[in-house]
């Protein structure tokens, strides 16, 4: 098994059940094996494409525009207090 499923799930911030670890582990193994076919291709010197349509330097005027009101943003948060998003204590 090449995937350390527990480690990857932790990086992805997803808690997996024991059953999920087993199923995903096997499925991902199979998918990665399929992906290995790319190694048949010699890609030395080929530029990678991250964007199909080349676009460079998109600028806009740096002018003041109205932004979304704070109340609207906080209004859909799961938990909020005094104009902030509220999360469990992170500093001891």
């Amino acid at each position: 098994m090449r995937i350390d499923i527990e480690k990857v799930a932790r990086l992805a911030r997803i808690k997996l059940s024991e059953e999920e670890k087993l199923i995903f582990g096997n499925q991902l193994e199979q998918i990665l094996t399929y992906m290995e076919q790319l190694n048949r291709l010699d890609t030395q010197g080929v530029e990678p494409t991250s964007h199909a349509i080349p676009i460079f330097n998109i600028f806009r005027e740096d002018e003041v525009r109205p932004s979304i009101p704070r109340e609207e943003v906080l209004g859909i948060a799961p938990s909020q207090e005094d104009g902030h998003f509220k999360v469990p204590r992170i500093i001891e």
Binding site: M35, L38, N39, L41, T43, V46, E47, P48, T49, S50, A52
Partner: peptide, 12 residues
């Protein structure tokens, strides 16, 4: 990821 992005260039 890098390999796939290179093959993407070949497909383009």
């Amino acid at each position: 990821y890098r390999k796939a992005s290179q093959v993407r260039t070949l497909m383009r």
